[in-house]
Simulated assay, not measured.
Amino acid sequence: MARSTSTTQGRPRDPDVDRRVADAAIDLFGAAGWAGFTVEAVAKRAGVGKASIYLRWPTKEALLLEALRQRFSGVTAVEPANVREELVQLALQLFRRYVGDTGQAAFRIALEASRIPGVAEHWAGIRNSQVVAARAIVRRGIQRGELPPDTPVTLLLDTLSGAVMNHVQTTPPVAPEEREAAAETYSRKLVDFILANATAG
């Protein structure tokens, strides 16, 4: 008999339980990956009964997917300015994904999404949002004469996102209150490097 995906009739969902379970799921996935991700372990971290989780989500795949939907969204369109500022905005969005409480889970999902049913599609949508945003930035940059007409979007985005991920992984973490300033400083240096190569010659 399939488990219900909703709470018992007449009993309202407790938003605090939902939040604790989602936070615990993200923390556990970041620490242990899909191989170590179990409903029992999530329940223990969240301080709730396993039955409470199964009343909300019938499988561990559904649980992880909902937690990711709550904590990870796609790249949003950047505010039109000039190509340098737009690329810095994009880099900062990527930074915010890979640092802080959700950072480890973001790295895990980038590696493991393809083998988790449902999650692969969600992560593909997030990745596609990066491509859409980068294409729009390059298109505007070409129209304004800031970039050559043959600027390769894929190579530019690979360089930007790969550098951000590598920097987060290899640089000692900074205090939360210094995180945004450090990310912006690096993002500006990175974008200047990318643009210098994109416009060379």
Rank of each mutant, 00 (worst) to 15 (best):
N128M: 10
T7K: 10
D158E: 12
V78R: 03
R108H: 06
A43Y: 00
A35C: 06
Q89P: 13
N82A: 01
A62M: 15
K60N: 04
A32L: 07
L111R: 11
E121G: 08
R56L: 08
E178N: 15
L94Y: 04
G118S: 09
W34R: 02
T5N: 14
Q70A: 15
I137F: 04
T154Y: 04
V153M: 11
S129N: 04
H167L: 03
G33K: 00
V48K: 00
V164L: 04
A120Q: 02
N166M: 10
L160D: 12
L65V: 13
F37G: 01
R3N: 14
V164P: 05
Q89R: 06
P12K: 08
Q143C: 11
L155G: 14
Q9N: 08
T171D: 15
L155A: 14
F29W: 11
D14W: 12
R45Q: 05
V164T: 08
A183T: 09
V88G: 06
F193K: 15
L68G: 14
S129V: 09
A133I: 13
F193C: 11
A81Y: 07
E61H: 07
W123L: 02
V75G: 01
R144F: 08
H122F: 07
I142T: 08
A113T: 05
D27V: 04
A41R: 05
R135D: 12
L160R: 05
A91T: 07
N197D: 11
T151D: 12
N197E: 09
L147W: 03
P172A: 00
V21F: 04
E180W: 13
D101V: 12
R96H: 15
Y54F: 10
A105N: 01
V17E: 02
A41K: 06
A120N: 03
R135S: 10
S129A: 10
E177M: 12
W123P: 01
V131C: 04
R71W: 04
A182V: 14
N82F: 01
G145T: 14
F193Y: 13
V17G: 01
G103F: 01
Q93A: 14
V191H: 07
A2F: 15
Y186A: 12
A25D: 06
E180Q: 08
D101Q: 13
K60Q: 07
G10V: 06
R56E: 10
M165G: 06
G49P: 05
P172D: 01
R20I: 00
T8C: 13
G30W: 00
G36H: 03
R140L: 02
L28T: 14
A77R: 11
V48L: 01
V78T: 11
R56F: 08
R135F: 13
T171I: 12
I194G: 03
K60H: 05
A32C: 09
R3W: 10
T8F: 13
